[in-house]
Design a protein around this nucleic acid. Structure first.
Lengths: 197, 197
DNA sequence: CATTTAGTGAACGCATCGTTCACTATTGAA
DNA sequence: TTCAATAGTGAACGATGCGTTCACTAAATG
């Protein structure tokens, strides 16, 4: 076993350990209470190593969130079961929000005002775009099958379900549960997009 | 003039001065950067006076937001022009978000995880309920006139427009503009609730 | 006018930030 | 194999803001 005693890690090895530590802290104490020293200690790294890489706590956590985000993006193939596909994807998003990743998002919201615009924009689209792409794919498939109205391809509509999930997560302290997903679909999304065919 | 030289204010007089100072700071530096000393200085008050009233920064700002919130609640009478009424109310909400009040909301989101549940729930419903009531009134009026489907009275649907406004405000750094309000109405809310009559 | 109540302002101890520095482990080129 | 160069460690540091305390003072009460 070459890795049993890492001795002293460097580069990506160390960086990933720091990310994992940051996400773990995030999950345990919530964004507002993440301490740099705690992250360093948990990663068994020096505080200086953190500040060598990121200028402050906000940036470190953004980087950790981004690292995590790139991990989870699934390729999704519509099955033909419109509602079933939507349920699956929405539950996936809710589950993501329940993870440290969700806590990172919450913290990022709180700091929006004091972060450079282009940075927030970058992170925002990085999260939003993959979701939009998946929903767009599902909707396009539905349009092709005649189950979804063509107007549903408008960006605002495509982004509707994720927006509602996110709004709920941010204003309540927890993600939407399965019953909530059903409600959103049955009372809002499906009536809006479905042809009734 | 009895108030030209306040000498030393007490009670509500002082309290309101502190609230105004807190909201001004909020607007200037954003939630994350509000300093107790700055609020005290701006209100020309002692820091001890703040801590005598509220246990910490989060509570002070919550109190200030609540103080402001009670100021702004309008009684709204539906005019019969469904879309026009919705535009009016939605723009009002967007304007509120552009004020210090909006910044307070943003900060509150960031701290949700580390605040007692009943307190956040109280504040949440305090903001949500009046809005729901207004939209419900408009929708009920529409149902009575036959322009709105009865299904639109479902809570999720009633809360849809405010939820989208809030989601936009939280994830972008600014409130929805007038064109955005139109888009939300034309592509989501109206198609969903309107009878087409 | 005397007493009580409430606010002031400065000082304090504490936690955490972000930085610095002397030291050490790892790497890879000579 | 040796030895610079590179990258990480750990402890210490000054600065900042928190939340508290206390001696002092202004306003209200009676």
């Amino acid at each position: 076993m070459t890795e049993s005693t890492p001795g002293r890690r460097r580069g990506d090895d160390l960086e990933h350990a720091i990310f994992d530590a940051a996400l773990a802290e995030l999950a345990e104490v919530g964004y507002a209470n993440v301490r740099m020293e705690a992250v360093a200690a948990r990663a068994k790294a020096g505080k200086a190593s953190l500040y060598k890489r990121w200028p402050d706590r906000a940036r470190l956590i953004q980087a950790a969130a981004r690292y995590k985000a790139t991990e989870v993006e699934p390729e999704f193939e519509p099955s033909g079961d419109l509602r079933g596909d939507l349920v699956k994807v929405m539950r996936h998003i809710a589950a993501q929000q329940a993870s440290p990743f969700g806590e990172a998002i919450r913290g990022w919201i709180g700091e929006l005002r004091s972060t450079p615009a282009e940075l927030t924009e970058e992170l925002r689209t990085r999260i939003e775009n993959p979701r939009i792409r998946i929903f767009a794919k599902i909707f396009e498939d539905g349009v092709a099958r005649g189950t979804v109205k063509p107007e549903a391809l408008h960006p605002r509509v495509v982004n509707l379900a994720p927006a509602l999930l996110t709004h709920y997560f941010l204003t309540k302290a927890e993600p939407v549960d399965d019953a909530g997903v059903d409600e959103i679909l049955d009372h809002i999304v499906m009536p809006l997009i479905s042809t009734g065919a």
